[in-house]
Design a protein around this nucleic acid. Structure first.
Length: 423
RNA sequence: GGAGAGAUGGCAGAGUGGUUGAAUGCGGCGGUCUUGAAAACCGUUGACCGUUCGCGCGGUCCGGGGGUUCGAAUCCCUCUCUCUCCGCCA
């Protein structure tokens, strides 16, 4: 959520910058400012009315104490009238206030100045590329055949027990999952992240805090009986820890990491693009979150980007980093780097991580602030990234490392798997 | 799931209808003392909204929502959460 005050004071700039996100804010900003003016006007009148009636109430108390019954009665009558007026004013103030809030929630975050214009993923800019794409020869097969061949992931069994997109991992496949999770967490801890295990179900307020609600409600599984949502990412609990809090400046940077299962309904298309591990309803991910001083958040974003790159490097996977264009940056993000690894049998790039700076957009929604040296409260900045999401990493590892003897495990991972080859 | 108790400032904890946004203690911050620190002493210390160039002024907030009243942290209703006991259970 953008800061109302900022929009009030920088209306044209807001409209201009949102054009990069292909969002025409002209109309909504006008409506917003109108509702806001209405609210402020109503509040002023209400405050004045309440001030008078408060004073009167105090006087009445005094009159009763001193026994001046007649004066008390007279004041009491005046007070009743004021009360009626205050009630009406309050209604119109609340109406304008909720309209304001509603409109504010519909406006996306402003893109960072480095976000390139563009409509779709075609317009994303490759800012970095590393690693060699392996030559696999004629016998190469996609991962969904490899998982069958070595009996390490069973999609059909998942369909039987749950549904499409809920695979079973088995034997070395299961062990590989555990190895990756531990490897990712250890790497994060190594550079100062604090590990968390979080709830997998979250309440409504948390969904609003990070922006999954109200607009992306359909993406989450909803346990209606208890009105709880299954987390689509550990970002939600990990960031909501700080909902409604005021940090000290010395608390920065806050670096949290958590492994969790993630649940996404993604009632999307079926076919080649979503085959095998490419898109699942339940998957595993290690997520990193940082809460940072506004002056340092972009520096921190770069560090997070480097951290993710380092993980891919250690896994010996060819990867590239994209700077997302305006049309592809999410509603809540100001700047996003996507990481893609090359899956050599599918012969395509697969998105495995997304690292974003949300600036104060989430913080404003969840009232995450800090006190600066002068004692003033300001909004903090939030950042997060996948480090990393497992399924597509597994897909790429299986495909890229397939040999006649079996699937080889990258050196960095062997201490975690305890085996060097899946055969 | 059943029965009961409770929810007050960063924390602990007073306060049951009339200058109580809230005693007191701890913590935090500033100062005195000290070579420095501790102790002691003094002072200070909530958030949000509106208004003002600013000092300031006004309003709201004692778990959330609603009600009674001229007036509510204090009374009533409701929801949520926490704790204790019982039941069930990894």
């Amino acid at each position: 959520m953008l800061q109302l005050k900022y929009i009030r004071e920088n209306k044209q700039e807001v409209i201009e910058r949102l054009k990069i996100k292909n969002f025409d804010a002209t109309k909504i900003v006008d409506e917003l400012l109108e509702a806001d003016a209405e609210r402020r006007n109503a509040q002023k009148q209400l405050d004045d009315t309440l001030a008078i009636s408060k004073k009167l109430a105090k006087e009445i108390g005094m009159f009763f104490k001193t026994g001046e019954k007649e004066k008390a009665e007279e004041a009491r009558n005046n007070s009743t009238e004021l009360k009626q007026k205050a009630k009406e004013l309050e209604v119109s103030m609340n109406k304008a206030a909720s309209k304001t809030k509603e409109l504010l929630l519909e406006i996306p975050n402003l893109p960072h100045s480095s976000v390139p214009p563009g409509k779709s993923e075609q317009d994303n800019i490759v800012v970095f590329e590393e690693g060699e794409i392996p030559e696999l020869g004629e016998n190469k097969v996609p991962h969904w055949e490899l998982t069958d061949k070595y009996k390490i992931i069973d999609f059909d069994l998942g369909s039987k027990v749950s549904g499409a997109g809920f695979p079973f991992y088995r034997g070395k496949g299961a062990k590989l999952q555990r190895a990756l999770i531990n490897f990712f967490i250890d790497e994060a801890i190594e550079i100062g992240y604090l590990e968390y295990q979080t709830p997998l179900l979250i309440n409504e307020a948390s969904g609003y805090g990070t922006g999954q609600l109200p607009d992306k409600e359909g993406q989450m599984y909803h346990a209606t009986e208890d009105n709880l949502y299954l987390i689509p990412t550990a970002e939600v609990p990990l960031t909501n820890i700080y909902r409604n809090t005021i940090l000290k400046e010395t608390d920065f940077p806050i670096k949290n990491v958590a492994y969790s299962s993630c649940f996404r309904r993604e009632a999307g298309s079926y076919g080649k693009d979503v085959r095998g591990l490419n898109r699942l309803h339940q998957f595993d991910k290690v997520e990193i979150v940082q809460i940072e001083h506004p002056g340092k958040s972009y520096e921190t974003l770069e560090k997070m980007k480097d951290h993710v790159a380092n993980l891919l490097r250690k896994l010996e996977l060819p990867f590239r980093i994209l700077r997302l264009c305006g049309g592809d940056v999410s509603f809540t993000a100001a700047l996003t780097y996507d990481f893609e690894v090359y899956s050599a049998a599918q012969e395509r790039w697969l998105e495995v991580s997304s690292v974003s700076n949300f600036e104060n957009f989430q913080a404003n929604r969840m009232m995450l602030r800090y006190k600066d040296k002068e004692g003033k409260t300001n909004l903090a900045h939030t950042l997060n990234g996948s480090a990393l999401a497992l399924p597509r990493i597994v897909a790429a590892l299986l495909e890229n490392n397939q040999t006649a003897e079996g699937i080889t495990i990258p050196k960095a991972l062997v201490p975690y798997t305890g085996f060097e080859i899946i055969d």
